[in-house]
Design a protein around this nucleic acid. Structure first.
Length: 351
DNA sequence: GAACCGTGGGC
DNA sequence: TGCCCAAGGTT
């Protein structure tokens, strides 16, 4: 087995991008960057990293913030459990570890929101531990170079990749090796149409020499998307509107939204007005519903939301609204963390 | 271990 | 347009 460690580290030193989290090895900063970058492209994460570090420069400041304020910083990034877990972990470390970050893989992986990848990344970059990372980039590079057709969706596959990585990782600078192979996967050994002719390790690459670049790595089976129908009620009462915090074990947990009526199929306004949830909310109120509605097909990783927004003016409120929703001034809406879908609705009506 | 959790860019 | 997929983790 040809060891590609040294060529990759040299390639990295010449080609690495200038990224803000590469200016430090402080475990807090590395942690923040690694969580932000989970399933997220670098370009999407950079601004979030700057804002996050500026507002929360250390564990203490993060631990003492309110989760709603943190989620507002996270708004638009997706996978909001990442922010909730970070908040929990910051408070845990401040309360139980004097605000000092854990400094080795075995301790790091015990923390909420930190799995094998993130524990390995922090341990190697911040503490020089030889713990190889296995992310989507590494999976692709190793599968192609060494011709591994096993999937990381099963434990045996993960072990196979880890075994190879443990032989490759540079013990002198494991953090550089980990970042090098990830950067190589992100810039050179890309998923589609990689520029193999200009690759420094093409001569030892199994997939290149066998013409199997498009067959490796073995692709994950894609999940089918469930379709849901969301009818949002943007209710205006004087200068107030009604919102609620999502608390179910579902999408957008802990984010805010307008009163929602979810239906089994697409409903017209006429049909919706006969719905029992609608009748419960409005009782026998006189409604002034604006003609223009906003519709959007919102795509999530596992769901398609067919959304319809109605702007409804009322001159009198109902017990149900008061008891089940927060009434807030219209102008205060933007301090709450809301899903991208609702943000798009607000952008639409404010045009 | 399969299902679930967001969003946006590229083609 | 629809599909892929991106520095994953939890349940």
């Amino acid at each position: 087995m040809t060891n590609i460690s040294q060529p990759l580290i040299e390639w990295y030193s010449r080609n690495k991008r200038d990224l803000p989290w590469r200016e430090t090895k402080k475990p807090y900063n590395i942690w923040v960057s690694e969580i932000i970058l989970q399933q997220t492209r670098v370009n999407q994460g950079i601004d979030y990293y700057y804002r996050f570090i500026k507002k929360y420069p250390d564990l203490k400041s993060l631990a003492s913030t309110h989760i709603d304020e943190l989620l507002k910083v996270w708004q638009g990034l997706g996978y909001y459990s990442r922010a909730r877990n970070m908040h929990h972990t910051a408070q845990y470390l401040v309360n139980k570890n004097k605000g000092v970050f854990y400094s080795n893989y075995d301790d790091l992986i015990k923390l909420k929101g930190i799995g094998d990848y993130t524990a390995s990344a922090i341990a190697s970059i911040s503490f020089n531990q030889a713990t190889p990372v296995l992310d989507g980039n590494v999976y692709r590079v190793i599968a192609r170079v060494y011709g591994i057709a096993e999937s990381t969706q099963v434990k045996s596959g993960i072990n196979k990749f880890k075994e190879i990585l443990n032989k490759l990782i540079a013990h002198k600078n494991p953090g550089d090796f980990n970042q090098a192979i990830m950067e190589f996967g992100a810039l050179q050994c890309v998923p589609k149409n990689p520029d193999c002719e200009n690759c420094i390790i093409k001569s030892v690459c199994f997939a290149y020499n066998k013409g199997l670049i498009s067959d490796l790595p073995v692709k994950k089976q894609k999940v089918k998307q469930k379709v849901r129908y969301f009818n949002y009620l943007h209710i205006i009462y004087n200068d107030n509107t009604f919102i609620e915090k999502r608390t179910e074990k579902d999408i957008w947990n802990s984010l805010y939204q307008f009163p929602l009526i979810e239906t089994k199929k697409e409903y017209s306004l006429i049909e919706l007005q006969k719905n029992k949830d609608w009748l419960q909310i409005f009782e026998t109120l006189n409604l002034n519903i604006e003609k223009e509605v906003f519709t959007k097909k919102h795509i999530l990783s596992h769901q398609v939301l067919v959304a319809c927004f109605y702007k409804i003016r009322i001159i009198q409120t109902t017990d149900f609204l008061i008891n089940n929703y927060q009434s807030i001034p219209l102008a205060k809406l933007d301090i709450y963390s809301i899903p991208r879908l609702i943000e798009e609705y607000l952008e639409h009506i404010n045009k």
